[in-house]
Design a protein around this nucleic acid. Structure first.
Lengths: 228, 228
DNA sequence: TTACGATCCGGACCGAGGTCCGTTTAATGT
DNA sequence: ACATTAAACGGACCTCGGTCCGGATCGTAA
């Protein structure tokens, strides 16, 4: 099931990785069919569903700011502690809300049709990747922003690692002579939800210009030329 | 006095800018000799100094995490409200602590000697800029991380705007045919304190590699070749 | 059915950021 | 020196994220 979204029951928010994640681990997780919600007790599973439903309703009705842990707990008729045990922290809850779209996108670039999926040349896949990220961001901007963890953890979020790792792989194919690990961070920076929000909502820059900038960046870095 | 650091007395944290800051405003601020601490009342100025001193001591002795607003207030023998009135919020206080080094760096790339300052070709100034930022970051990483505001405000922090604006200017000279506003965001992303922290502290990547990646990025984008 | 251990639940509790407002005080004018 | 007023002060107070632990509940095995 792709990446397994976010921890569904693990209290340690992240395994304190000291070095770049190993590829095998990634693939293993991707092939586990039901890695999330692993044998959750009946009441626990029921409360988890209740909580997600309540949180989603709160976001829809009153915006992401209204998604207070206490409010969610109350709306789900559940104790506050339950929310934290299930999702770890606020970021975990919000991330879980984004999980579905996240997995869909992962499926698209991992095994979907070209140019996003395998089959197209790497540079073109990169361009499609950026377009996809940008489009996805504008839909869920508020949630993605609210789900952003503190500065310390920004780069440790599993979902982001998967995305960055994919970019790094494409880069290795397209620009073998570069430091693709670091370069992938640079590219991902351009797709950061906070930046997208700033540029589109606060600066009024149209999405099309962001897409152009992305493809132009890919062009320059890979030395290729995209079709107009 | 360069940029005027962070607000020194203004309760509104930032003027809600809807579009890229205008260049004239920047220059005006840069030429005001004592724009910060504008006509602060005697007791206010004294308390401000006390607070900065106390906060600095706390950082040095017990780390940035120990810099609680209440702790700083207590250490400075001052009420909690005073801290907030003076610095707006925690981010403001931490930013004020970084102000000195910030202004020094601004002076260096605005009017210092080449290659960082004016006089060198833009691509080379860019390379020097990245080196300077990286070096400065490793010194003050903890503070810079702690001073990072929430996701919404990351790109509105005045100091960051000045830096980014400078990069954009250099880019316009070096790569006139690109969208330099957006490209500058990309470059600045590579110098983000949170990223630096992640790469150096959590991934163990040596600083030299980050510097190489930076110069390589500049090379690729500007089409120039740096000296080995 | 019952007993038992692991898991989960709930809400009291804590710390920290941020707000508010009645009080104090520094600057200025008379 | 004294009155006036705008600014600064301080700490009580609020909210919210996060922790803790005694008690309830589920799954299981006898």
């Amino acid at each position: 099931m792709l990446y397994a979204g976010f921890m569904s029951t693990a209290p340690p928010p992240f395994p304190t990785p000291q070095e770049p994640v190993a590829l095998p681990e990634l693939l293993q997780l991707e092939t586990t069919p039901e890695a999330d919600e692993p044998c959750l007790r009946a009441d626990a599973a029921r409360n988890r569903a209740r909580l997600l439903e309540a949180a989603g309703r709160l976001v829809a009705e009153r915006g992401a700011d209204a998604v207070t842990m206490e409010a969610v707990a109350a709306a789900a008729c559940v104790g506050k502690g339950t929310v934290f045990r299930r999702f770890g922290d606020r970021t975990g809850l919000l991330t879980a809300l984004l999980d579905h779209s996240e997995k869909k996108f992962q499926a698209a670039f991992l095994s979907g049709p070209p140019p996003l999926g395998p089959g197209a040349p790497p540079a073109e896949r990169l361009r499609a990747f950026g377009r996809g990220m940008l489009r996805r961001s504008v839909d869920e901007l508020e949630l993605q922003l609210a789900a952003e963890p503190g500065a310390n953890r920004r780069f440790v979020v599993p979902a982001r690692r998967v995305l960055r790792h994919h970019v790094a792989m494409l880069l290795r194919q397209a620009v073998p002579d570069a430091d693709c690990e670091l370069l992938s961070h640079t590219l991902m920076g351009q797709l950061d939800p906070a930046l997208i929000h700033h540029l589109t909502k606060q600066c009024g820059i149209p999405l099309a210009r962001l897409e152009e900038a992305w493809t132009d960046l890919v062009d320059r870095l890979t030395g290729t030329e995209s079709a107009p």
